[in-house]
């Protein structure tokens, strides 16, 4: 069993000196080695200081005297000329490339391979969707779209980790919380004209987005574009009425629940469909009549899932970059 040494004994040991040197409290060379005395900076005369300052000022004036500095003027002229030349050459190259493209919709165009032929010939029969793009991304390549919506989810989580203000701060230190969240207190809020406009416009925009999502398998559109429209409507509402009004229907919990439910449903439904398809079983999901709104099997619910995820992602991005909290 070791015993603690006295302070006077301990101060003589090597380890004490070593740790003291490590901390930088004492330089072991000071007492032992002969050193040249340091120059005191105050010893300089005032004239030399003034001269140095004057020379520095003159140098700065010479450098920043833009109107008479020939180098800078020449550089600016050449920069302007080269930037314009660069733009014109890029324009020319792009237009030249466009002129060599084959015309749209010509029957004599070269086809890539047999995959698009298969999509066009048997797409309606196999998926039940009139919109080929929708049938492609949500039926033939559904796991690809699942990965895309997961990428959106992961991006939102990263933004939340980086930008969200600590929620414990709200209870412990309300003053600091206010300071960190209200970063745009000086911005003019509650503009009555914008509020009047948003009151009538926001429901129309959100309805249009829902219509785009629900018609994803019949007409152009679908989950991604419809979700983006709904997110834009929410952002407009937020701009007009402020955070106090939006917190009534969209908080962090809403985001968690909506995204989790949508992604889980997507995963389970598509896994079931792929499992039955791979084992040549009957999936019992009705295809319906192509062109009707309740048709084409799983495409409609999957569209709704993707739309919800995209709308939540857009709104969360805006909130996080704006305030740091919902």
């Amino acid at each position: 069993m070791s015993r603690k040494k006295d302070d006077s004994l301990y101060q003589k040991t090597f380890s004490y000196k070593f740790f003291k040197w490590m901390k930088g409290e004492k330089d072991p060379l000071v007492g032992n080695v002969e050193m040249t005395p340091k120059k005191d900076p105050k010893e300089e005369e005032e004239e030399t200081i003034n001269e140095r300052l004057r020379e520095k000022q003159m140098m700065l004036e010479k450098i920043y005297d833009v109107e008479n500095n020939k180098l800078i003027l020449n550089f600016r002229k050449i920069y302007k000329f080269i930037s314009i030349l660069f733009c014109i050459t890029m324009f020319a190259i792009l237009f030249l490339n466009v002129s060599y493209l084959p015309p749209v919709g010509d029957a004599g165009n070269p086809s890539d391979n047999e995959v698009p032929v298969r999509y066009i010939e048997k797409g309606i029969e196999e998926t039940g969707a009139v919109n080929f793009v929708s049938g492609m991304i949500l039926d033939y390549r559904a796991f690809d779209t699942f990965g895309e919506s997961n990428v959106l989810f992961i991006a939102t989580i990263t933004v939340l980790i980086l930008l969200k203000v600590d929620s414990k701060l709200k209870k412990n230190d309300p003053e600091k919380y206010e300071k960190e969240t209200n970063d745009r207190t000086l911005e003019p809020k509650k503009d009555p004209i914008l509020q009047f406009c948003a009151r009538y416009l926001m429901p129309v925009i959100v309805l249009f987005g829902i219509c785009t999502i629900l018609n994803g398998h019949i007409s152009p559109g679908g989950g991604f574009s419809g979700g983006a429209i709904i997110g834009a409507g929410l952002i407009l509402y937020l701009n007009a009425f402020g955070f106090n009004d939006t917190e009534r229907f969209f908080i962090e919990k809403t985001y968690k629940v909506v995204c989790f439910v949508a992604l889980t449903f997507y995963c389970l439904a598509k896994s079931y469909s792929f499992f039955t398809g791979a084992n040549h079983l009957e999936s019992h999901i009705p295809k319906g009549i192509p062109g009707a709104i309740l048709s084409s099997g799983l495409i409609l619910p999957l569209d709704i899932c993707v739309g919800l995820v995209v709308a939540c992602t857009m709104y969360t991005f805006y909130c996080m970059f704006r305030k740091g909290d919902y």
């Binding site: 911005e187 003019p188 785009t212 152009p220 429209i229 834009a232 952002i235 407009l236 701009n239």
Partner: peptide, 28 residues
């Protein structure tokens, strides 16, 4: 025409957002 509708909405939203954010930044 759907694209035109969405485009008109987005251009309106862009003007609203940029003007409000610029006013806030200027005041700060």
């Amino acid at each position: 025409m759907d694209v035109a509708l969405v485009y008109s909405m987005l251009s309106f939203l862009a003007v609203v957002l940029i003007s409000k954010v610029y006013m806030g930044v200027y005041a700060e």
